[in-house]
């Protein structure tokens, strides 16, 4: 299955790096560097393995799906301190102002950040001839996540570093035969 998948590992890595890079540089005026790539289901990373984020804090996950000839879902995981830092930078607000509003502001900001990253990823896929539509973002919070999809053609986990903190992009894709 993996050998016949229309997107190669190199292309997927380029798509992920470009999407993250363009959103971080444009909206947050900072860089995100790719640290590692994991092939889930491969020898170095089994399905259900822990995410490669070095933190004991609560995690926040933004998720947006895309549907077309290539369908899938992209998760962005980060710990709450990084999510708060990103929200401050995105909205040009102080930590106290954001904390005063409760979870909603951080959730919305990470949801929008995910939406933009998946949007940039999806637009690059469209330019390669794979038109697709996006779903509305959703947010999860928790301390331990394990994603075991029922059916997937390609799954890669990319770990990025940004200002000394790490975050993870988990991309799950499959080719739709009905399209």
């Amino acid at each position: 299955m993996q050998q016949t998948f229309p997107i190669t590992d190199t292309e997927l890595e380029a798509l992920a790096t470009h999407a993250v890079g363009s959103v971080y540089s444009t909206m947050l005026e900072t860089d995100a560097t790719l640290v590692s790539t994991m092939e889930v289901g491969g020898s170095d990373c089994e399905e259900g393995s822990a995410l490669p984020i070095d933190t004991d804090q609560t995690l926040i996950a933004g998720t947006v799906g895309f549907i077309g000839r290539l369908s899938g879902v992209i998760y962005i995981f980060m710990d709450l301190p990084l999510a708060l830092k990103i929200t401050c930078r995105l909205l040009d607000l102080k930590t106290q102002e954001i904390e005063a509003e409760g979870h909603e502001t951080v959730n919305d900001a990470i949801g929008e950040l995910t939406n933009m990253i998946v949007g940039a990823f999806k637009n690059d896929l469209s330019n390669k001839g794979y038109e697709c539509r996006m779903t509305i973002p959703s947010i999860l919070r928790g301390s331990s996540f394990s994603i075991e999809p029922a059916e997937v053609g390609l799954r890669r986990v990319f770990k990025f570093d940004c200002d000394g903190s790490s975050f993870v992009i988990d991309i799950l894709m499959k080719e739709e035969t009905q399209f």
């Binding site: 363009s22 909206m27 939406n115 998946v118 949007g119 940039a120 637009n123 469209s126 330019n127 996006m134």
Partner: peptide, 23 residues
């Protein structure tokens, strides 16, 4: 956040002045 040719063509037909892609 959704650019792509198909989307742009669809909204252009209805009549928009311009569009901006996020980010």
């Amino acid at each position: 956040a959704e650019a792509g040719r198909e989307n742009v063509m669809k909204i252009a037909k209805v009549g928009v002045r311009d569009y901006i892609v996020k980010p």
